[in-house]
């Protein structure tokens, strides 16, 4: 299946794009997606980021769906 993934801040700098469509296996879960992304973008292994699904931070493993809006967020810096 295909997933749309959004990148922000220093992560967009690493991926060199603000979003992309990524082909992943059907029944891919959030942990597996993280592994795929860390393999594709090795710099992600050394920084802290949050995986967000439909604007909610994934605190447990979630099965992904093509309708999900997935985002990778670097540390926040508001204020």
């Amino acid at each position: 299946m295909q997933l749309k993934i959004l990148y922000f801040g220093m992560i967009a700098e690493i991926t060199k794009c603000s979003h992309e469509i990524l082909a992943v296996e059907t029944k891919c879960n959030s942990n597996q997606l993280e592994t795929v992304l860390k393999k594709k973008y090795q710099q992600l292994q050394s920084i802290s980021f949050k995986l967000v699904i439909n604007q909610n931070i994934a605190t447990k493993t979630i099965f992904l769906h093509p309708d999900h809006e997935v985002a990778l967020l670097p540390p926040f810096a508001g204020g």
Partner: peptide, 9 residues
């Protein structure tokens, strides 16, 4: 705001 809002600088 500092903790919860996805703003990047």
């Amino acid at each position: 705001i500092k903790k919860e809002v996805p703003i990047f600088g």
